[in-house]
């Protein structure tokens, strides 16, 4: 099963996505981490997420770019966190953002369950500079493609899942 989880900053989507991944499968679990540690804040964030996952049997694969290069045992349950970081790294770090959507499809074919975390960055009514606007347009497009391919889509609103597509899996 492929699940897309969206939500705003600090809404509890990571915690929810982890619980969901753990409830979907008792088998081997892989966490694909996309965030580059560039400063103290990102280091703290990564440390918090690592602590949250500790002891839950995830193997962590660092993948700031080029998702199709990830290798893991077939049949694992994969938690991919998250699309906005992956896109920023591809767009602004000398990669190619157009390879993200095909790589997601390929990834969903390789694993038993795929839980994808993305972010709602579209609703603050601000006008951004052209590169940021282009980033938002690309993220919206990737989100839509991920939602089309997912059987289940949920928005997490302050820890509460609002199911947008498909039936709620047991969490």
């Amino acid at each position: 099963m492929t699940v897309l989880i969206t939500g705003g900053s600090g809404c509890g989507k990571s915690t929810f996505a982890e619980k969901l991944t753990e409830s979907l499968s008792a088998g081997s679990r892989v966490y694909i981490a996309t965030m580059r540690v560039v400063d103290e804040e990102s280091a703290r964030r990564v440390a918090r997420h690592r602590a949250q996952r500790a002891g839950k049997g995830y193997r962590t694969i660092e993948c700031p770019k080029d998702l199709s290069g990830t290798e893991f045992a077939p049949g694992a349950s994969v938690l991919l966190e998250d699309l906005p970081n992956l896109l920023a790294n591809e767009m602004f770090g000398g990669g190619d953002w157009k390879r993200i959507a095909p790589a997601l499809k390929e990834l969903s074919g390789k694993c038993r369950h795929l839980v994808i975390v993305t972010n709602d960055v579209f609703s603050d009514g601000e006008n951004y500079d052209p590169p940021t606007a282009e980033y938002m347009r690309c993220l919206a497009q990737i989100n839509s493609e991920a939602a089309r391919m997912a059987e289940v889509v949920a928005e997490v609103v302050y820890s509460i899942p609002v199911w947008l597509k498909g039936d709620a899996p047991c969490v």
């Binding site: 600090g10 804040e41 579209f122 609703s123 940021t132 302050y158």
Partner: peptide
């Protein structure tokens, strides 16, 4: 609801959205 925009460049604004969430 304040977290559904581009993550702000200003660290204080970023921290505010996280804290509110």
């Amino acid at each position: 609801e304040v977290g559904s925009g581009i993550v702000p460049v200003d660290p204080a604004e970023r921290a505010f959205r996280e804290a509110a969430g």
